Computed example of a mutant assay.
Amino acid sequence: MKRKETKFYLTTVLIIAAYYLIFNFVARLEFVNQLSDFGFYGLQILLIALEGIVATVILVKSQRWKEYGRFQFRWSYLGIFFLSFILMFLWVNITTRIFPSTQNGSAIKETVANLTGISYFVTRILYGSLIAPIVEELVFRGLLMIALSKFKKYYIDVIISSTLFSLIHVLQYGWVLTDFIVYAGAGLLFGMLFLYTRSVYWPMALHIVWNTFLIVVSLLVFGY
């Protein structure tokens, strides 16, 4: 049993390290930068999608999927879901007013403003509203928080998960404390929802809805 748990912990660490390398190493390789926009972003999306597949396989093989990979509807879960969305809305609006725009957010705006056709659809719509939220929840809530479940006293699992979730969004552009605070706050909300529902589907749904909401607002305000 200990050997199986050790393997689960090790693969979790490797998955998170691979997530970091996709944006901080692979994306900077010379041959990758020579690809077309569609090829460049398509490669990144493919690698992230593979991360999600591997994370799911690890969860299933570890038997954790039986507990955390099931969807259970309760009115209290739905209420917490909507409360989490409202808190996310308030958090983003407050931090937007007192902090400068995050580097990640600025990079996304600059990128999608120059994309058209299938490149725009795949990068902005398919990846931004679906693939990224699903994979990030599988990795940072599904894998990581389950691996840290023994340390959930004082919400250590939530804190570590939100910290690494934030770092993944921040470090590829260089350390900025305010950027870290913004994403860590969002990570805390996703983590608490996962902890309350004991299911990866609820934070995954919140993440999808939130990202889709941001994309719709951006389309209405900026046109992209």
Results as ranks from 00 to 15, higher is better:
Lys2Trp: 03
Gly223Met: 06
Tyr196Ser: 05
Ser84Met: 05
Tyr127Thr: 08
Phe8Tyr: 14
Tyr154Glu: 14
Lys2Leu: 06
Leu10Cys: 09
Ile98Gln: 07
Gly191Ser: 11
Ile159Gln: 01
Arg141Ser: 02
Ser101Lys: 14
Lys2Asn: 12
Ser149Trp: 04
Gly117Gln: 08
Gln72Lys: 12
Leu214Arg: 07
Ile98Thr: 08
Ile16Lys: 09
Val26Lys: 04
Glu51Tyr: 00
Val60Ile: 13
Phe140Ser: 02
Arg74Ile: 02
Phe194Asp: 03
Met88Leu: 15
Tyr20Met: 13
Glu137Arg: 00
Tyr120His: 08
Glu110Leu: 09
Ile53His: 08
Phe81Asn: 01
Ile156Trp: 14
Ile45Thr: 07
Leu90Asp: 08
Ala18Phe: 12
Val54Lys: 07
Val182Met: 13
Leu50Gly: 05
Ser36Lys: 04
Phe151Ser: 14
Arg97Lys: 14
Lys7Ser: 12
Ile45Glu: 01
Tyr155Asp: 10
Tyr41Lys: 06
Thr11Ile: 15
Lys109Trp: 03
Thr178Arg: 12
Leu46Asn: 01
Ile159Pro: 01
Gly117Trp: 02
Phe71His: 08
Val32Cys: 01
Ala184Tyr: 05
Thr11Tyr: 13
His207Ala: 02
Phe23Pro: 04
His169Ser: 09
Leu90Gln: 07
Gly142Val: 07
Ile86Ala: 15
Leu59Val: 06
Val54Arg: 03
Ser36Ile: 02
Lys150Val: 02
Glu110Trp: 00
Met88Lys: 12
Ile22Gly: 00
Leu46Phe: 09
Thr197Gly: 03
Phe38Ile: 11
Ile181Ser: 09
His169Cys: 06
Asn24Arg: 07
Gly191Ile: 08
Val182Tyr: 10
Leu35Arg: 04
Asn211Asp: 14
Glu5Leu: 13
Gly69Trp: 12
Phe222Gly: 10
Leu35Gln: 05
Leu167Lys: 04
Leu83Tyr: 11
Thr111Lys: 00
Gly117Tyr: 02
Leu90Phe: 12
Gly187Asn: 04
Leu46Ala: 08
Ile45Asp: 00
Tyr20Thr: 06
Phe194Thr: 02
Ile181Met: 07
Asn33Val: 06
Ile134Lys: 06
Tyr20Val: 10
